[in-house]
Design a protein around this nucleic acid. Structure first.
Lengths: 137, 137
DNA sequence: CAAAAACCTATTGACATAGTAGGTAAATAG
DNA sequence: CTATTTACCTACTATGTCAATAGGTTTTTG
């Protein structure tokens, strides 16, 4: 299950991409547009800055902006930063204690296959792919 | 993340399929072979019986057995019984309150696509697909 | 009738999720 | 140069899930 941290982070990226003014965008605006509590978003963007996805600028006229172009961010990268490794079962996660039954485990190939499917899906998608072109009214 | 309930349930199914004697197999044996606490397995098989995956028989000579043939169980069916709907984001889960932003949400198609991928993957796999043929030593 | 098995209820510790609350530091517009 | 705007920081909390453990009761048959 993808949690709000990952999902909100992607929405922030999209919001910044679509409302790009060339300068910094205050979090207040993002929160209002997205209908998400600004306080909660603070926690999220903090991690995004620490992870190098965004740059933040304090003070009047400050806010956040993307570091790279939208097509240079994979969705998987954003999710992994926010939620840790995209592992679908515990025994395939990063720092997991190696399972002593791995050799004989008949279900491991199933999880490994699903893991790869998931990984490829999210790392093959980019923020730019999510921007809705059709804005017809 | 698939939890132990779903994973253990699949291992129980596999164990019962592979050690089929024509009669009931006591949980003690399954637990010993699989290296899982019998007490914990009790909780799991209870749900499996309630969900119609297994039949249990009390008393001496009792135990559990599959209701159908291994090829007639999809992996997805087992997981959904144990962990609830295979939904990857909250807003796509079964009884979720309909999101008021669904119309305009730019990320929803992404989650829907991943959801379908996941669903198709697990409902396309069957217990019989997991049985290891190659038992070379 | 005794053993073996399923079946039942309750409890626990650890952790994650989804926030809220209140304050400090930095930078700029006027 | 100061008031305002903004990011940034620490802490707290309520709720729920996960992964079990514990101990007892009922059922069935050899």
């Amino acid at each position: 299950m993808i949690s709000t941290k990952g999902r909100y982070a992607i929405r922030v990226m999209l919001d910044l991409a679509e409302n790009d003014t060339g300068s910094y965008i205050p979090l207040k605006d993002v929160a209002a547009r997205q209908g998400i509590s600004k306080k909660y978003l603070e926690i999220i963007v903090k991690d995004m800055v620490a992870g190098g996805l965004l740059i933040g600028a304090s003070g009047k006229g400050g806010g956040y902006r993307l570091v790279r172009k939208p097509e240079e961010y994979s969705v998987g990268e954003v999710i992994e930063l926010m939620e840790g490794p995209l592992a679908t079962v515990a025994c395939l996660a990063d720092g997991a204690v190696p399972c002593p039954r791995a050799e004989e485990c008949e279900t491991l190939p199933l999880w490994a296959e699903y893991d790869k499917l998931t990984h490829d899906f999210f790392f093959g998608k980019h923020i730019s792919d999510l921007i809705r072109k059709d804005d017809s009214k």
